[in-house]
Every structure is written in C-alpha cells, then in structure tokens.
Amino acid sequence: MKFQFNKKYLITALTLFLIELTIAFTLHSGFIRHTFGDYLVVILLYAILRGCTNLGVWTSSLAVLIFAYTVECLQLTPFLTYFNLERSFTAKLIFGSTFEFNDLIAYTLGVITILILETKVLKLETKENAKLWKP
C-alpha cells in the first residue's frame, strides 16, 4: 500500500462527511439516521481509503467491510468503558453503543453499491468517454 491522493475520492468523502454530520445532528431517530447513515458511512470510509491510498476497488471494499463489521461487533462488548468513553457523545456517535444486525446489512449493501458503481457504472462511463475521443 502506498499513500497517494485522489481528488475525486476526497471530494466525494468530504461531501459524504457533511451529509453524515447533517444526519447526525438533525435527525435523532428513524430510517435515515439509523440505517441510511450506516449505509453511507461505509461509502464514506471507502472514499477516504481510495482518496489516500493506491489500494484497489476490491481490497478497499473488503477492508472497509471488515472494519465496519468489527466496530459493530465491538458494540456487543463494553469497549467504550475500557477507554472511559461511555459518557462521550462523540465516541457514541462514531462507534455506536448498541449492536444491530440491520447495521451489518446496511454496511453490506453499501459495499455492494460501491462495487456496482466501481465495476459496472464507472467502467461503462470510461469506455463511452474513450469512444467519444477516438477519431
């Protein structure tokens, strides 16, 4: 793995981060807050990883999914207590505080969306652009 910056992914990450902040501070319950936010967060993490490294689509997707699953499974333990963060709003916001199986589904759907976009949609765009520029 080598560090390299990709403006497209970093702009995507910044946009998703601002959306996530808006969701976190304006919505306190419901589908958008609890499920769609989890769906978007894996896409955000993927965009950060791809924006800062030269890792490929599949490696980055798998790394993000494993990370998301790990954080979710940690919620089965009192891990915030180990770090004296059980009362921290920010820690609870970032790491969550209760395990939800539906979150695992949201993470998986987010990664599937990434893979579809990266392998199908963006590849088609690239091929179509190449055809446009050929004499």
Rank of each mutant, 00 (worst) to 15 (best):
L85P: 01
I94H: 05
N84S: 10
C73S: 09
F89H: 06
L104S: 06
I94E: 07
D103R: 02
E86G: 05
I105T: 14
K92N: 14
S97E: 15
E100V: 12
D103G: 04
L74S: 03
T70V: 12
F101R: 05
A91L: 10
N102G: 09
L76Y: 01
K92E: 12
E100F: 13
F83E: 03
C73A: 12
G96K: 00
E72C: 00
T77V: 08
E72I: 02
G96L: 07
Q75L: 06
D103Y: 10
K92R: 15
G96A: 05
T81R: 14
A91W: 06
G96E: 05
Q75M: 01
S88G: 12
F101M: 12
V71D: 04
P78C: 08
R87I: 00
T77A: 04
E86F: 02
N102L: 13
Y82K: 08
L93P: 07
N84L: 07
G96T: 09
Y69V: 14
N102T: 14
F83T: 02
I94L: 15
C73M: 13
F99K: 09
L76M: 05
L85Y: 07
E86T: 01
Y69T: 12
I94S: 06
F79L: 06
L104A: 05
I105A: 05
Q75E: 04
I105R: 11
K92T: 11
V71N: 00
C73R: 00
T90A: 14
F83G: 03
I105S: 04
I94P: 03
K92M: 15
T90I: 13
F83A: 08
N84H: 09
L104G: 06
S97D: 11
T90Q: 12
D103H: 04
R87S: 13
T81S: 12
Y82L: 08
F99L: 13
E72G: 00
L104V: 10
E100T: 07
R87Q: 14
S97I: 15
E86M: 06
S88P: 11
E86N: 13
F95A: 15
E100G: 02
R87M: 11
F79V: 03
L85N: 04
F101H: 10
Y69K: 00
I105K: 10
Y82F: 09
R87E: 14
C73G: 06
F95Y: 14
A91R: 11
N102H: 09
F95V: 12
T77Y: 05
L80R: 00
D103W: 07
L93I: 10
Q75V: 03
N84M: 08
Q75S: 02
F99Y: 15
L85K: 09
S88Q: 11
E72Y: 01
T70I: 12
S97R: 15
T77F: 05
Q75I: 00
V71S: 03
S88H: 14
F95I: 11
L74N: 00
T70D: 01
E86C: 02
F101N: 10
F99S: 10
T81V: 15
Y82D: 02
L85A: 01
F101G: 10
L93R: 09
A91M: 08
T98D: 09
V71G: 02
T90K: 11
F83L: 09
N84I: 02
N84R: 14
V71A: 05
F79R: 02
T81W: 06
S97Y: 13
K92Q: 14
L85M: 13
